[in-house]
Structures are given as C-alpha cells and as structure tokens.
Simulated assay, not measured.
Amino acid sequence: MTNPTKIKRQFTPQQKAEAVALCLSENLSCATAAKRLGIHPRCLTTWVRQARIDRGDFGPPEQGQLTSEERAELARLRKENRELRRDKDFFKLAAAHFAKEQLPPRGFG
C-alpha cells in the first residue's frame, strides 16, 4: 500500500495577513480562526506569532525573535556567505592548480 501524496498549500502574503487580521481583530483563538478558514492551526499560530513580533507586541526582542525584515536580511546574508565561500574555494583550487604547473618536474630527467 502506498502513502497518499501530501500537497503543500501555498498562501500569499495577503492571504496570511488577512488570516492574522481575522484572528486578532475578532480576538479568536488560532484554532477557532484556522478552523473557520480551513487551514491548519499550526500555520495560523506561526503567522500570528510572527505578526506580533513584527509589531513589537512582546517588547524588546528576545533571543531568536526576528522580525520578518530581519529574517529576510538573514536569509540574504546566508546566501551571500555561501556564494562567497564557493568563490573562495574555487580560487583556492585554481591557485593550487597553477602553482603545481609552475613547479619543476621531479625525478632524474
């Protein structure tokens, strides 16, 4: 017997914002609002928590609490870091290759 394939639903930023607004404006629990909207409660809980962090509802950010803007910047910097490491490794290999060509041949020639 094969497992049914799960399809991951994609939500636009506007859909997420509207779901969060419904939950917060009507003071509904995430579970109640998620049931009403037909989405998984864990998704809505995550979106609401991030919206509250972005609004500063939790006071000064605690460790691990990044705003959406900070998360985007962190992702960009991590990508840039990967690319720079890849470039550095490439140039290191190229330098070793060209240095090897410059060495005199070994042995009794």
Score class of each variant (00 low, 15 high):
27 N>D: 10
27 N>I: 07
75 A>R: 13
27 N>A: 09
97 H>G: 03
18 E>P: 08
48 V>P: 09
25 S>V: 13
76 R>H: 10
28 L>N: 03
102 Q>L: 10
76 R>G: 07
67 T>E: 02
74 L>H: 13
31 A>Y: 06
34 A>Q: 06
18 E>F: 05
14 Q>N: 12
36 R>Y: 07
35 K>A: 06
18 E>D: 13
44 L>G: 02
55 R>Y: 10
41 P>D: 02
21 A>Y: 15
104 P>A: 01
88 K>C: 07
12 T>L: 06
2 T>C: 05
85 R>K: 11
10 Q>M: 03
36 R>M: 15
56 G>D: 06
10 Q>G: 04
87 D>F: 10
24 L>R: 11
33 A>G: 04
89 D>S: 00
12 T>Q: 02
65 Q>M: 08
93 L>G: 05
92 K>D: 08
84 L>G: 00
22 L>Q: 05
21 A>H: 15
73 E>S: 08
67 T>V: 09
67 T>A: 02
24 L>G: 01
25 S>F: 03
91 F>K: 08
98 F>H: 12
37 L>D: 05
85 R>S: 09
45 T>P: 10
11 F>M: 05
60 P>N: 14
36 R>I: 15
101 E>W: 00
9 R>I: 15
80 E>S: 04
18 E>V: 03
34 A>T: 09
52 R>H: 01
12 T>N: 03
30 C>V: 10
67 T>H: 01
96 A>L: 04
48 V>L: 00
41 P>W: 15
2 T>L: 05
105 P>E: 04
54 D>S: 00
54 D>Y: 03
12 T>I: 10
16 K>T: 12
69 E>Y: 14
20 V>I: 02
27 N>E: 07
100 K>G: 01
7 I>A: 04
101 E>V: 02
2 T>K: 02
